[in-house]
């Protein structure tokens, strides 16, 4: 699953070096072509769990029709998907599943966190709910709302397209993903405490404790 591997080195304090290739005419032209193709052919992997999935279905249906963006091929096989749309709340029991699906998707891949619950836990600040899927997988676009209207989701998709169009193949760090350390955190525990002092963050139990 790629999860049990502890992050052997901690990159949090390193200075991020952006690129080894300097942008030139060739890379920018290639960037244009690749980004154009990728942005306009985002096949979604609908990870629909709850209420947001219904609004996601409404987005796919006739009135809003994400087919206009070339997205009507719902890839239920993660191998053929480009963007993971997590629509709905994510309990801890489902956390390894979304992680597995994310790992199964081939690069380049993006993810949209649709709705308050997926983005932050929403009203479900309780024992069973992941407080934001970004503790499990990297997220590109957060769409707020409970659930977001289809227009909101489409705005998120368009933002993602914009983001994709800004990518460059010269950036070799672009798709680098940090692995979760043995503590289950991306940062060392002390650093989490340090960052969240003195009030803790929104869900104050996220402290390493």
């Amino acid at each position: 699953m790629g999860l049990s591997n502890p992050a052997t080195e901690n990159r949090a304090d390193e200075v991020t070096t952006v690129s080894s290739i300097s942008p030139n005419w060739v890379t920018t032209r290639l960037d244009f072509l690749t980004n154009w193709a990728r942005a306009n052919s985002l096949w979604p992997m609908p990870f629909g769990t709850a209420c947001c999935a219904i609004e996601y279905m409404a987005t796919a249906a006739s009135r809003f029709d994400i087919a206009r963006f070339g997205m009507e091929r719902q890839s239920f096989s993660p191998r053929q998907a480009d963007v993971l749309i997590c629509a709905g709340r994510l309990p801890f029991k489902l956390a390894p599943v979304i992680r597995r699906i994310w790992d199964q998707m081939p690069q380049p891949k993006w993810s949209i966190s649709m709705g308050a619950c997926a983005s932050s836990g929403g009203i479900f600040d309780n024992y069973s709910m992941v407080q934001g899927i970004d503790t499990i997988i990297p997220v590109d676009v957060y769409v707020p709302g409970c659930p977001p209207r289809p227009e909101g989701l489409m705005y998120g998709i368009m933002l993602l397209q914009k983001k994709i169009k800004g990518e460059t193949i010269a950036d070799d760090m672009l798709r680098e993903e940090k692995l979760v350390g043995p503590s289950g955190l991306f940062l060392p525990a002390e650093r989490v405490d340090e960052l969240s002092e003195p009030f803790g963050n929104s869900v104050h139990q996220t402290r390493s404790a």
């Binding site: 193709a37 052919s41 206009r68 963006f69 070339g70």
Partner: peptide
């Protein structure tokens, strides 16, 4: 519905985008 209509005239370039991707 409308179907793909964002790339090229009436979405004619959609297969190209899918292919290149």
């Amino acid at each position: 519905r409308r179907g793909p209509n964002r790339v090229g005239w009436a979405g004619l370039l959609q297969p190209a985008a899918d292919g290149v991707k």
